[in-house]
Simulated assay, not measured.
Amino acid sequence: MKESHFIPEKYLHNLKNGSVTWQSPSNIALVKYWGKYGQQNPKNASISFTLNNCNTLTELKYFLKDSQNQEFDFNVYFEGEKKDDFKPKIESFFERIEQYIPFLKHYRFEIHTSNTFPHSSGIASSASGMSAIALCIMSMEKLMLPEVSSDYFNQKASFLARLGSGSACRSIKGELIVWGAHENIQGSSQLFGIQYPYQVHDNFKNYQDTILLVDKGEKQVSSTVGHNLMKDHPFAEQRFQQANENLSKLIPVLEQGNVSEFIKIVESEALSLHAMMMTSMPYFILMKPNTLEIINRIWSYRKLQNSAICFTLDAGANVHVLYPENEKETVLVFIKNELAPFCKNGEFIIDQVGFGAIQK
């Protein structure tokens, strides 16, 4: 499939004024994507759990302009407060998607958005935020082209979201989403995320993710800068190969319910991501001392309790603690007693795998 597939020929209906609202979740990658080319294309395939409780609620109000001009016209409000500093990223997003959404300059927009999690908590707010905007825009297009199928709607929403933030393409649906062309995963694409097409053992149903907020400040390095550092990285090609091989290894692991192998792959992926940042030029250490303390305590608990608990990390200090639903009660006691003291103000977020975005 080519990008031109998402360019509409002609709209059947015109819209005047109205609003659409979507709630879209964040996600956490199990096999990481780190490194891109062209227009937000991934250098390797990735797979993620869609989250349930960590989401963004976005209302897009649209008003047909009296006269057309060559500028995008919009304002952004975050939790009721006007946020002009959010505008450059959305302006860039609109520029990237305009050829696929040709009505953007015909309307004045108000974007009202809020998160169920702290904005600076290190959770992928760009994934939930950009996917929510993409879904709102697709709802407008659906009103103009009612015959659009649900499959096309979801594919194009994921495609658009990717152009705003790469990982956002994995936040449209759930529970497991693959993004990036992979020879062993049928239907996988560089252009959009797909629902994982193969069997998943009951061991991985309703998987839990408790997010430990070690650091709530601004990122030490932005995702864009981090991805760009892969262009001249001495280990980049080996890393892309490793990620694709790990995704291949996950296929039988997910089917057979092999939790011990799942743990090895997921934790290795998290540490590999951080190893790439530590060996780039310039180099960054994104983990904090408390991140390492938490990891070591997770390892000790797993060994002593014969538990299936494990961790993963995004490009930051916070820790995602993953574990099966049948261990929820005991693991939460462990987290509250032994891990929460290493979080900023003792804060953590209890979440689990979800099923994707919802129109409100």
Results as ranks from 00 to 15, higher is better:
Arg302Gln: 11
Lys82Arg: 15
Phe334Val: 10
Glu91Val: 05
Phe103Tyr: 15
Glu325Leu: 09
Asp215His: 14
Val31Ile: 15
Leu304Glu: 12
Ile133Arg: 05
Ile28Cys: 00
Ala317Thr: 11
Val20His: 02
Asp215Leu: 01
Glu91Asp: 10
Gln99Met: 08
Leu271Ser: 06
Lys360Gly: 02
Lys142Val: 03
Val178Arg: 12
Ser167Pro: 04
Asn69Thr: 10
Ser188Leu: 03
Leu51Arg: 12
Val333Cys: 01
Ile358Ser: 07
Gln305Cys: 08
Arg96Ile: 06
Ile295Lys: 03
Ala157Trp: 07
Phe103Asp: 04
Gly164Lys: 05
His320Trp: 10
Ser150Gly: 00
Gln359Met: 01
Val20Glu: 04
Gln238Cys: 06
Leu332Cys: 10
Trp34Asp: 03
Ile263Ala: 05
Lys82Gln: 11
Asp73Arg: 08
Glu218Phe: 08
Lys249Phe: 05
Tyr152Thr: 05
Gly316Ala: 05
Arg162Glu: 04
Ser139Ile: 05
Gln352Asn: 08
Glu79Gln: 11
Gln195Arg: 14
Ile294Asp: 00
Lys105Phe: 02
Lys16Leu: 02
Ser260Cys: 00
Arg239Phe: 12
Ser48Tyr: 11
Leu51Phe: 10
Lys2Tyr: 11
Lys173Gly: 07
Gln305Leu: 01
Leu15Arg: 08
Met130Asp: 00
Asn228Ser: 08
Ser19Lys: 15
Ala270Ser: 15
Gln39Val: 15
Lys43Leu: 14
Leu254Lys: 07
Asn246Glu: 11
Glu245Leu: 12
His274Ile: 14
Ile350Ser: 02
Glu218Leu: 13
Trp299Arg: 06
Phe348Val: 10
Val31Ala: 08
Met140Trp: 09
Asn326Asp: 07
Ile172Lys: 09
Val148Ser: 00
Lys105Trp: 03
Arg96Gln: 14
Glu79Pro: 04
Ser92Asp: 07
Met277Leu: 13
Asn290Lys: 11
Ala315Met: 09
Ser114Val: 08
Val31Ser: 05
Ile309Glu: 00
Ile263His: 01
Pro42Arg: 15
Asp202Gln: 08
Leu339Pro: 05
Leu191Asn: 06
Leu213Arg: 00
Leu254Trp: 11
Leu339Ser: 05
Ile194Val: 04
Arg162Ile: 14
Pro88Ala: 06
Val266Asp: 04
Gln40His: 13
Ala127His: 11
Ser171Ala: 15
Lys36Ile: 12
Gln23Lys: 12
Ser139Pro: 05
Gln352Ile: 02
Asn296Cys: 09
Ser4Cys: 07
Cys54Ala: 15
Phe78Ser: 03
Ile294Gly: 01
Ile349Ala: 00
Leu160Thr: 08
Gly354Leu: 05
Lys328His: 09
Gln68Pro: 14
Phe311Val: 04
Trp299Asp: 00
Glu218Asp: 09
Asn337Trp: 01
Ala243Arg: 01
Ser128Pro: 10
His274Pro: 07
Met278Glu: 09
Thr312Met: 03
Tyr62Pro: 07
Met277Gln: 10
Leu143Met: 14
His274Lys: 14
Cys54Gly: 07
Asp151Trp: 00
Phe159Asn: 04
Ser120Gln: 03
Leu135Met: 09
Asp232Ser: 14
Ser139Arg: 13
Phe192Leu: 00
Asn228Trp: 03
Gly164Arg: 07
Phe117Leu: 01
